[in-house]
Design a protein around this nucleic acid. Sequence first.
DNA 1: AAAAAGAGTTGAACAAGTTCAACTTCACAT
DNA 2: ATGTGAAGTTGAACTTGTTCAACTCTTTTT
Lengths: 196, 196
Amino acid sequence: MPYDLLKQNIKRNVQISDNDLDIVCSYFKSKQIKKKDFLLRQGSVYKYEGFVLEGCFRIFTIDKKGNENVLYFATKDWWLMDIDSFMNQTPSLLNIQALEDSEIILINKTDKEALYTKLPIVEKLFRIMSQKALVAWQRRLIRNHTLTAQERYNHFISNYPEIASKLTDRQKSSYLGITHEFLSKIKKQHKLKKIM
Amino acid sequence: MPYDLLKQNIKRNVQISDNDLDIVCSYFKSKQIKKKDFLLRQGSVYKYEGFVLEGCFRIFTIDKKGNENVLYFATKDWWLMDIDSFMNQTPSLLNIQALEDSEIILINKTDKEALYTKLPIVEKLFRIMSQKALVAWQRRLIRNHTLTAQERYNHFISNYPEIASKLTDRQKSSYLGITHEFLSKIKKQHKLKKIM
DNA sequence: AAAAAGAGTTGAACAAGTTCAACTTCACAT
DNA sequence: ATGTGAAGTTGAACTTGTTCAACTCTTTTT
């Protein structure tokens, strides 16, 4: 049952019949992605919305100075969407890159629109998912305003240990909005505190 | 037609019949709020979702150190929602306060659920609105990571001049995630640059 | 197995933003 | 009209985080 993970994920958000679940699943197609390959590159249009079955992705932008800025990571059981580009079919500001060999399932825009029409419950599903995501983004912004880099680092590794364990320090620092040099110093401080 | 503003707002997001629009509007009740009064206080449960007809609100948290942290402002034609508290009917982390005498229209949770069931288009409406909001939050986080306080200030006042004009510098600084003293210094720098 | 590239660490000098305290200016309630 | 409190300004000392360069340690590529 390769789609079991997707089904469980959906059931956590809406009440849906097994039959409808099967219909939803039938719209998705599986895809393997090799480590370091891109699912999407800045400037091109995002044609698929995805759900990660296995592996790990980073979603990031590159600013004018050439710095990479990670918006978020997506591992097993996470949705991969570039809402802006997907919804409006405009060039994306984001890159989506696999950090390890990964497997995802994809749905394209036309099929998704069809699915919304065929099964109104899907509309509700994405409404609820989007609202939950919105809350998460708001909380992250508050953390960025109120916590120090040290505190944000601690929050990240204790709240997302599975993801953190797959990442290099450079990737973590990019997500936290600090330089990798400073993250290194934070970790040293942390160790010193433990010893004392 | 006091609900014209709401109707126009909705029509910008979904195609909807005038009849359905009237039904949607009939679920909202108007409320006047005096300057400095709270629509919601941290710790209480948010029972209504609102749409601003006139005036201005600030949505903010107070952290452990006692600092106020503005998440966003809402003026005329903006939605006022504390999604987390409203969706799950749990105590809110947010405060919503009127910055001037204001008028909003409200819908309560039970009625909103009823509306979702009665008119599936409303489900689509809020799905689309949430997704658009999500994009805006992601972009704001990127700006926070990549821009200096100076640049964020410039971005804010040039992108939201109407809102900015209603705010004190303290409120702006709280939204930008800096101290009001530093904002004052930024403005001075800015003026000096203009002169030279 | 060697070479090359990427990842982490460290230090010194620097820049960005904060804190605190003192002062000025403005709004508005009485 | 006046007093009071909130809003804005400024400076000095401070903290947090950056930059750049040098070095080490792994990984990956060949």
